[in-house]
Design a protein around this nucleic acid. Structure first.
Lengths: 216, 216
DNA sequence: GTCTATATCCCGATAGAC
DNA sequence: GTCTATCGGGATATAGAC
């Protein structure tokens, strides 16, 4: 029976895994700080401190601040999009709205930092994500618009500009993450409170269901 | 006939006015840069350059960067609120929605920088505006909520959570300013384009009118 | 991979002449 | 009120030992 791998001679595999784990710790720390203070408002010193390592060490994993920022953004991007999967022809329009809104609100509750970071990037004019918006998100928007137009043509929902509908859906759900501090101050309420969460999901859902409902 | 006031001996009044004009130039320059690059991402050097004066001179008018930031925020605040005036009992609910949405969209079109700056501040957790939100905006929200509840009790609009309604109204209208670069990339459209502006106003208006419409 | 030490630069703010 | 000169601090990033 071979001895358990000792710390003094870690296998290459273990070393790679350990490196990967450290990268994740760094990205999590950076996301938290960037999303609250902005990239320019966050020093690498503080990121390193939060990731429990030296700044030099952090720079070993991500050689420049820009590289770190890009890595944080990319890590977060895909999860931002997954709720959109609900907008497909296998669902009814009402199901699609209900499920999309709920999923996106869960995202706003559980990944507020990611949402805020995305908001920062767009406010800056999308200097890093510009290409992604054009090449990845835009085709998705067009595909989803096609689904919506299909539903409208079939007479299964009221006629609504698909792009505008998507913009409104994003705005109403993201506001609970991006403007959380305002909402909290004005109403003493957080999505972490289950009652407020359900009330918010319900409000946004009803807003859109009323709009897509067919007359008569 | 007295000679026109010479430059070498300006009257105290003229001096004050000139100082006031300079302050406005500085605030406009700072607003433009802060709202795009963030406060931390903007150097006083660049603000001074845009305001066409030396940095030392700028500091003479606003002794610290924080003071400048506060001045910019305060200058912008009141105009952000004025559309809310439309939510009053002299209007019908439908009029209120129609007018509020249009005014707010005009604000998003013509004062996008102000809207973005406000967004930055909230993303940061409202370190400067926190007190203002609590002491000024919150009473306003409560007053407007009262108006909405009044309309509901009178059976003039469907039952909607007033606070949630206000949050959604803000979100759907501000997104055209704060997320303008995203909207532009995804749809090649700007609020500066009159056709797109009208289409957007109409979309948002119909979204809320459908929701407050009474059944039957 | 991690450390200490340090280079280099930029920024906010001050001092003091005019 | 505006200028030149400069201070002091903090930030990103590098060099090189271990």
């Amino acid at each position: 029976m071979p001895p358990v791998q000792a710390d003094t001679a870690p296998s290459p595999i273990r070393r790679v895994r350990e490196a990967e784990r450290k990268r994740q710790v760094i990205l999590a720390a950076a996301l938290e700080l960037f999303s609250r203070l902005g990239v320019d408002g966050t020093s690498l010193d503080r990121v390193a401190e939060r990731a429990d390592m030296s700044k030099t060490n952090l720079i070993y994993y991500y050689p420049t601040k820009d590289a770190l920022y890009e890595a944080v953004l990319n890590r977060v991007l895909s999860s931002w999009l997954t709720p959109l999967d609900e907008i497909n022809t296998a669902n009814t329009p009402e199901q699609a709205i209900r499920r999309y809104v709920r999923e996106k609100m869960i995202f706003s509750r559980d990944n507020a930092a990611a949402s805020r970071l995305f908001c920062f990037e767009i406010l800056h004019g999308a200097p890093v994500l510009g290409g992604y918006l054009r090449e990845t998100l835009r085709p998705i928007v067009e595909a989803k618009s096609k689904v919506i137009r299909h539903w409208i043509r079939q007479g299964r929902m009221a006629a609504v500009d698909p792009q505008q509908l998507l913009f409104s859906l994003w705005a109403t759900t993201q506001t609970f993450a991006d403007f959380a501090s305002q909402i909290e101050t004005l109403g003493d309420q957080t999505l972490a409170d289950p009652a407020f969460f359900e009330r918010s999901v319900d409000h946004v859902t009803q807003l859109f269901l009323a709009r897509i409902r067919l007359p008569g």
